[in-house]
Simulated scan of single mutants.
Amino acid sequence: MYYNGSRVFLISFLVSLITSLVVCVLFLYVLPISKGGEVVIPDLTGSTPEQARVIAENRGLLLVVGGEEESEKFAENQICRQNPLPGSVVRSKSSITVFISKGASNVIVPELKGLGLSEATIKLNDLGLRIGDIKTEENSTIEKDKIISTLPVAGSRVKRGDAITIVLSGGAEMIEVPRLIGKALTTAKRIIEEKGFVVGSVSYEVSTEFDVGIVMAQNPKPGTKARKGSKIDLIVATVLDQ
């Protein structure tokens, strides 16, 4: 008997709860909230126009699209503004004018090449942009810690608030200077180019130690570190003019 009584009570409670929920749903979303022909304006912001139209019609209201606006808060194709405001009381069959978000406003990525990070940060912040990832690449033409390029590239249109990837110069690669002393001039030139250097000045001096056409001195010295793309000067052995 006790078990049956508890079961009847539980079933009655669940039926009452479900009935209450159904009434609430009908009250809020299906039946117009009205009193004496008046309706409370629902909050349509964040809804799509299609969703908003269903909500408005279920409350006995008319939906009017007033246009499109840029919005930082609401995504594209969402309602970002409405008139009357949510919670206002109007007569049944009144209209609600809504404005559709076009998304965040677009800005053009500025040219940052050659700038330092602090300068670039200020320039981006002024446009509503921010620095994202920072990468470093070796570069022989851009000073170390200065910007080589950006991603998206300068001139691209992006949304306000987007992050811009920065590529910084790590300076030119430092590589070991090869030993060229004792090699023929043609061989030395080939090695210089293969190692990423540039042939600098070539001068000739008389030598009793080296054969004619053989490199007898170089600058920078072999084994030292020099910037990739820098010059290596050579002194080549020759003989006195007869």
Rank of each mutant, 00 (worst) to 15 (best):
E119C: 11
T97W: 02
L124D: 03
T136C: 09
D233L: 12
Q78E: 13
L185K: 05
P32R: 00
I142D: 02
G103V: 10
I18P: 04
N139E: 06
T48E: 01
G161N: 02
R157W: 12
P32F: 00
I108H: 00
A154R: 06
I192V: 04
V206P: 00
G171Y: 05
G161R: 06
T19L: 15
V64G: 04
A237M: 03
R7E: 10
S149E: 13
G103A: 11
V64K: 09
I134C: 03
S71E: 02
L240C: 07
P178L: 10
L234Y: 01
T224D: 04
I166A: 13
D233P: 00
S230E: 03
Q51A: 13
I181W: 00
I142R: 03
I232T: 02
P42W: 06
E205V: 15
P42M: 08
E138A: 13
T136S: 09
T165L: 14
T150N: 06
E138F: 15
F13P: 01
Q242Y: 11
F27V: 12
E57V: 12
E143P: 04
I166G: 04
E70R: 08
E50A: 13
A75I: 13
V25C: 06
L21N: 02
F99S: 06
K146C: 06
A104Q: 09
A226N: 01
E57I: 13
V22K: 02
V98I: 08
V54E: 02
N83S: 13
I192F: 00
T150P: 03
K221D: 11
L31K: 05
V8S: 08
A172H: 00
T208F: 08
L240M: 07
V202M: 05
R190I: 14
L62C: 08
C80G: 06
R81V: 10
N4A: 15
E194C: 08
I142M: 11
K73A: 12
